[in-house]
Measured scan of single mutants.
Amino acid sequence: NKFNKEMRNAYWEILLLPNLNEQQKRAFIRSLYDDPSQSANLLAEAKKLNDAQA
């Protein structure tokens, strides 16, 4: 399933972002589970926040 693969990839990438705190990571991951079809958008948002907090 395409969404499962995308979601899994986004999950691990979000977990490994160094500048997000645990609460932020949990919020993004919760959103991933709520709507896996938004994986790419959520990952992009997480990366943007990660860069902003660098």
Rank of each mutant, 00 (worst) to 15 (best):
K2T: 12
K2A: 13
A10T: 06
A54N: 14
F3T: 15
N21S: 10
Q38L: 08
L15R: 10
D51M: 11
R30K: 13
R26H: 13
N41P: 08
E22P: 15
A52V: 08
A46P: 00
D35G: 09
P36I: 03
N41Y: 10
Q24N: 09
L49Y: 12
N21R: 12
N21Y: 13
S39H: 14
L17P: 00
L20P: 00
R30F: 07
N21F: 13
P18I: 05
N4E: 15
M7E: 07
F28S: 07
W12V: 04
F3M: 15
W12N: 10
N50G: 07
A44M: 10
P18L: 05
S31M: 12
N41L: 11
L20Q: 00
A54Q: 09
P36S: 09
N21H: 08
A40W: 08
I14M: 08
L15P: 01
D35S: 06
M7P: 00
Q53K: 06
R30T: 14
R26F: 05
A44G: 07
E6D: 07
S31W: 08
K5M: 01
Q53A: 10
N21K: 10
L42K: 06
F28H: 11
L17H: 15
Y33S: 01
P18V: 07
R8W: 15
P36N: 06
R30H: 09
L16F: 13
N1D: 15
N21T: 10
A40N: 12
A44L: 11
K48N: 12
N9G: 05
K48Q: 12
N21G: 13
P36A: 06
A46F: 01
Y33Q: 02
K25L: 05
R26Q: 07
N4H: 13
A10Q: 01
L49T: 11
L16W: 08
N19Y: 11
R26A: 04
K5R: 02
L43R: 14
Y11D: 00
L43I: 08
I14D: 00
P36V: 04
A27D: 10
N4G: 12
Y33N: 02
N50T: 02
F28P: 00
Y11N: 02
Q24E: 11
Q38S: 13
K25R: 11
E22S: 11
Q23I: 08
A10I: 11
S37E: 09
N41T: 14
S37H: 08
D34G: 10
L42D: 02
S31Q: 12
R8P: 00
E13V: 11
D34A: 11
D35W: 06
N9M: 14
N50R: 02
L15I: 06
D51I: 08
S39D: 01
R26V: 08
E6G: 01
N9A: 15
L20G: 00
Q24F: 08
M7Q: 12
I14S: 00
W12G: 05
S31K: 09
K2H: 15
D51N: 10
N9D: 12
S31F: 10
K47H: 06
N1I: 03
N50L: 01
A27S: 11
L16R: 14
L17V: 02
K48L: 11
S37W: 10
K2P: 05
I29F: 10
R8G: 02
D35P: 01
W12R: 12
D34P: 04
K2F: 12
L32P: 00
F3W: 03
L16Y: 14
N50A: 10
A27L: 11
N21A: 13
M7A: 15
A54M: 12
R8N: 04
D51T: 11
L42T: 12
E13M: 10
P18A: 08
A10N: 02
W12L: 02
I14P: 00
Y33A: 02
D51E: 15
I29K: 02
Q23M: 08
L43D: 01
K2M: 11
F3H: 15
E13H: 14
W12D: 04
L20T: 01
A44Q: 11
D34M: 13
A27G: 11
A46N: 00
K5E: 15
L32V: 03
R26S: 05
Q53R: 07
L15D: 02
L32I: 04
A40D: 07
P18K: 07
D34W: 09
L17Q: 08
N41D: 08
P36L: 04
M7D: 02
N50H: 14
E45R: 12
P18H: 11
L17E: 02
N21E: 12
I14Y: 01
N4F: 11
N4Q: 09
L49M: 09
S31Y: 14
S31P: 05
Y11H: 04
Q23P: 11
A54V: 13
L43Q: 10
S39Q: 04
A46K: 00
I29E: 02
A27T: 14
M7V: 13
K2E: 15
N50D: 10
I29A: 04
S39R: 13
Q53D: 10
A44D: 05
M7F: 15
Y11L: 09
R8I: 14
N21W: 12
S37V: 06
K25E: 02
K47W: 05
N50Q: 06
K2W: 14
F3R: 15
Y33R: 02
S31L: 13
N9K: 15
N1V: 03
F28Q: 03
A54K: 09
F3Y: 09
I14A: 01
A40F: 07
R8V: 08
R26Y: 14
E22T: 12
L20H: 00
F3D: 15
Q24D: 08
K5W: 01
L16P: 04
N19I: 09
